[in-house]
Amino acid sequence: MLQVVDLHMAFGTLEVLKGIDLAITERELVFVIGPSGSGKSTLLRCCNRLEEPVKGQVFVDGTEITAPKVNLNKFRQRIGMVFQSFNLYPHLSALANVSLALRKVSKRSRVEAGELAMAALQRVGLVDKAHSYPNELSGGQQQRVAIARALALEPKVMLFDEPTSALDPELVGDVLNVMKDMKDAGMTMLVVSHEMRFARNAADRVVFMDQGVIVEEGTPKDMFGKAQHKRTRDFLQQVDH
């Protein structure tokens, strides 16, 4: 469903990704962990070309989105993204946030877009907040609206960039529950996060990145219990799990 081949990315002379190969099959939830600066967020952003890789290829549902003549806007609808700082549009209501792309990109009518948006809000449990504005919502609610915004376009794969890192602890659970529901419903997900407990419970595979390369990957049981590489074990020891 999502495949990354020999991905290289640099900011000027600073090499951030030094050859990443990763394949995610349909319905898989892959968790990416690693210290800050390891390139995890950059990897995520290369998957929908918010960052442009300097070398390598990204395939989504069989199509190479790093090819020169690809219709990126069209393919970005197939790739949903959720950000650490939510990035809701503050001048629009929750419903308008979710329906904007439906109206302007999928070219749905206002009525149709509204219905689809309400359905997405229902999936994240926020139908009653449809007409609220982002500044009236808690962090957890905002993030769930952000998830609905991505879901409404019916993506094939969802990318999560530290979705709960900016949330107060008591709000994290609501967002993780929504993510668990999505996993159970069969969504393909690539998640960068520090929520190790969630990884243990929901992830099919855990990938450890450090300094721009994938050091190790495996099932949660393998990684958390008996990681092969010392770097992996050191990192996991530092992070509470």
Partner: peptide, 13 residues
């Protein structure tokens, strides 16, 4: 905020 551009572009706008 740059995040606004990123969110908008990531939905295909």
């Amino acid at each position: 905020d740059k995040g606004q551009w990123q969110a908008a572009r990531s939905t295909g706008l």
